[in-house]
Design a protein around this nucleic acid. Structure first.
Lengths: 117, 117
DNA sequence: TTTATATTTCGCAAACATACGAAATGTTTT
DNA sequence: AAAACATTTCGTATGTTTGCGAAATATAAA
């Protein structure tokens, strides 16, 4: 009878961050921004990514909405950087989530090849 | 001139795992399965989740496709468990990805409140 | 063999995501 | 003021995701 459970804030936040990370263009941008200690122009990114300017702009908007990047307006450019605070928050969330296993269980049969991965 | 970059396998795999993790129902299922060292019936899950049986079945199918769970047929039930091998793989991928920052950079201005998080 | 149970697949509808080019915005240079 | 530039927003097309209930599948119990 426990129907209609409320998801915990952690579960909801993992789902939100994961949605932001669910497209290779966005993963690439975050990887680049987190590696290069400085920031990055939209115009630089469009050169190396297989999408047009307006599409890239939407991906950047989504990452900004998710709180993972921030933009500094530096006319006529906009420099994008990692939002370190939320990046650390994401790290904690994922590490906690992925470490939650209490012990190793008995394998459960039927492990298939997964050729598509 | 470096247009049309190929995404690395790591970037693509993070995007795939993240897609699987981009819905609270699926995050909840993985959290539960990774915590409880044993397995879980679809019928038990439907009791505590705000979706119907057929919808839950689709979410389970997606997690299975992503390689994160596996099902042991134990008629007339199907027991689902974490796929430990790929769960560990995901852990490594995310930890590497989230630790890739080379140093702390100069903050980049324009940090907004993010009330929706 | 019929009935009950657990789960999945099918068919459909509504909402969302991804992509593009054209037009809009705002700034700098001429 | 006009031209050039970087970027975003708008409108639109197309595909994918999420959800449901009904029908299908397959096993167990009566």
């Amino acid at each position: 009878m426990a129907k209609k459970l409320e998801f915990t804030p952690e579960v909801q936040q993992i789902a939100r961050f994961s949605k932001a990370l669910s497209h290779p263009v966005r993963v690439y941008i975050l990887q680049k921004l987190s590696k290069m200690n400085s920031c990055c122009y939209s115009g630089d990114l469009v050169e190396e990514l297989p999408v047009g300017r307006s599409t890239l702009s939407q991906h950047l908007k989504e990452l900004k909405y998710a709180g993972l990047i921030q933009g500094e307006i530096n006319p006529p450019y906009i420099k994008y950087c990692i939002n370190r605070e939320n990046w650390e928050r994401a790290k904690k969330l994922y590490i906690d989530f992925l470490n939650e296993n209490h012990s190793v269980n008995i394998p459960c049969g039927e492990t298939e090849p997964l050729t598509h991965l």
